[in-house]
């Protein structure tokens, strides 16, 4: 799905300033929990809030970092590390690989917009 192709599907979630750089926050989108992360360059990335390994809604509370070129978040529960752009699990801590859903995000006029139809990461 392309953002420009379907602008009507964008949902305003919060202001950019509601988010702390390199930290996550949870948002409710159509009853589903989404974890938003604000990067140092003010880009915002979104993945599912549900940690696929623990089953708890905690991904937004993980530590943000980098692995090589990839932006990552580490689950605060059992420390699996995920690529924030692709949702791919980069460090499974010995478990079978599981992905996070990702959402395209755009910022306009200081407002964080999330594409409604979830894209499989």
């Amino acid at each position: 799905m392309s953002l420009d192709a379907a602008p009507e599907s964008l949902l305003a979630v919060c202001r950019l300033t509601d988010l702390v750089p390199e930290r996550g926050a949870a948002a409710l989108v159509d009853g589903e929990q989404v974890a938003l992360f604000r990067m140092v360059d003010d880009e915002v990335l979104a993945v599912q809030q549900l940690d696929p390994y623990s089953g708890a809604n905690v991904m937004s509370r993980g530590i943000v970092g980098t692995r090589g070129e990839a932006w990552t978040v580490a689950s605060p529960m059992y420390k699996q590390v995920f690529d924030l752009r692709t949702g791919e699990c980069l460090d499974t801590q010995g478990r079978e690989p599981r992905r996070l859903r990702t959402w395209p995000v755009r910022c306009r006029d200081g407002v964080v917009l999330l594409a409604r139809g979830p894209r499989e990461g």
Binding site: R23, A56, P76
Partner: peptide, 19 residues
């Protein structure tokens, strides 16, 4: 420093299995 902390230190409480 806030962005460096593990969730436990970040909210100054201990995360349990259900979040």
């Amino acid at each position: 420093q806030a962005a460096l902390q593990d969730t436990n230190d970040h909210v100054m409480a201990n995360l349990q299995k259900d979040g």
